[in-house]
Design a protein around this nucleic acid. Sequence first.
DNA 1: CTTACAAGAATAT
DNA 2: ATATTCTTGTAAG
Length: 184
Amino acid sequence: MKKPQAFYYFSMKSEFGEIAIVWRHDKKKLMRVFLPSQHRLFKSSDYKDAASLKGNNSAVRKACKIMDMLLEGKPGMFPLEMLDWSVAYPFQRRVLRMECRIPHGMVSTYGRLAHKLGHARAARAVGTALARNPFPVIIPCHRAIRADRSLGGYAGGLSMKQRLLELEGLQFDRYGRVMAERFW
DNA sequence: CTTACAAGAATAT
DNA sequence: ATATTCTTGTAAG
């Protein structure tokens, strides 16, 4: 296993558990976010510890601070130019960017997002793109649900998806469906 | 190139 | 609530 010189990881605590972020220092960009449920996929030995970053780790600190806010359900936008988009294919990039436009406290559906992208029937492809979201939480894929207002899926587990939405002020009915009066 | 999927949607029952 | 059918972009073969 080689260890790319410029890749650093930082592990942060949250109410959901340990969340790891991978920072690409040569580009000064965030490469990936690993949710607690994805810890199996995350190999810290593949990266260097961000704690070893001398002085100039302010960008990492800033990234963590924004992450913390988002994990508490506070509105905030991670600077999209600090994300390394090269990890995503064009269609996925478009999906992720569209996803970012869903306002805090609001939800959309996979189908509506597909429609906005000009692929009216690509709801399922949108779901796939979101399932592979390299930046969960930052890119709020938890705000995309099914047309019947059921949750759909989430890489971090459905309980985390529900909790994130609740933190944004959304409520659920007794069948676990989002009580949204309207979709974005 | 072909195939098998995936965090869907619409429809009917 | 469950079953059927229609979908599209991707990764793997």
